[in-house]
Design a protein around this nucleic acid. Structure first.
Lengths: 164, 164
DNA sequence: TTAATCCCTAGTAATTTACTATAGTATAGA
DNA sequence: TCTATACTATAGTAAATTACTAGGGATTAA
């Protein structure tokens, strides 16, 4: 069907990790990388647009890190995905009918526009506060850095590259 | 955000073209290619899975072609996209939690599952009969092969490869 | 001063996408 | 029967995208 990039997925987890530590000072990428099992180098890329969009801010130097600029309940997954996938549409013509001569009388375009709206609405229906609560429920505990990788290091979404 | 492939988009138009000619005998790919401005070779690829899925059937030889096996009102866009993108998920773990160790306590996964459902629901809410009627409304006419390419040949979705 | 951080610009291998090519097989109609 | 018109099947491939990785530089707490 349609695929969601690791950029959006890892980015969503990155922000969720920061939401988990909201109000506790800056969080280091190295810690997030360890907890979320994503390389620091990759996280560094995700953090740039999030900062430019004003969703997070950074503290440089020792004991530095990143923090959310607002409460988790004020940030939706849709906002984060939107920032990370800026300018990407489901179909080129959905945002600009001028891109396709067919647009004015294209019935399929109406479908794509509607699908895009559905995706956006769904993503916007989840705030990071919601995600924190869902995570707590799923864990059954009080939720604090509960997720730990296996001792062999193999972990989450490890089959990203290999399997079709 | 997430992108929809040309496979799904052209395939949707391919079936819509066949729906437009439903009950009028087999339609040749060469004609669809001309009307929809997609190469015959590419259409040939799209037609294979649709035939295997039983949505269309073929007639070989001169005056042959393809036809829908059922009325346009019985086929949804979702069904066609599903056939063309078989085995593709929004995120690897949505169909099979086993693919990711994190799945049992992953809040973000719940979001992806919900988004996928929203996409599917929306795509399934449109039948080809709906699309035919939408097209008629958009055209303002009685709708029969009304869409013609420009004399210079440049046409629909021409910026597929070039622009970002 | 030093080590821990974030910051910045590239680079790149693997994969996927969006096609194209070549060589058929089946059939209607002359 | 011949032939042009279709569909059928299997490869191949250039371009684009994805998912990273590398190698430094700038900032700051201790």
């Amino acid at each position: 069907m349609v695929k969601m990039s690791t950029k959006s997925r890892y980015g969503t987890r990155l922000v969720l990790d920061m939401a988990r530590h909201y109000g506790q000072g800056p969080v280091q990428l190295a810690d997030i990388a360890r907890r979320q099992q994503v390389s620091v180098k990759y996280l560094e890329q995700l953090v740039i647009p999030l900062k430019l969009a004003g969703l997070i801010e950074s503290v440089r130097g020792v004991k530095g890190g990143y923090l959310l600029t607002m409460e988790p309940r004020l940030i939706t997954v849709g906002r984060v995905v939107d920032v990370l996938e800026r300018g990407q549409n489901l179909v080129p013509c959905t945002d600009d009918p001028e891109k396709c001569r067919r647009a004015p009388f294209c019935a399929t375009r109406c479908v794509w526009v509607d699908v895009e709206r559905a995706i956006r609405d769904t993503l916007d229906s989840y705030t990071y506060q919601d995600l924190l609560e869902m995570e707590d429920t799923l864990m059954g505990g009080k939720g604090e850095d509960h997720v730990q990788p296996d001792r062999d290091g193999s972990f989450y979404e490890s089959e990203e590259r290999g399997s079709a």
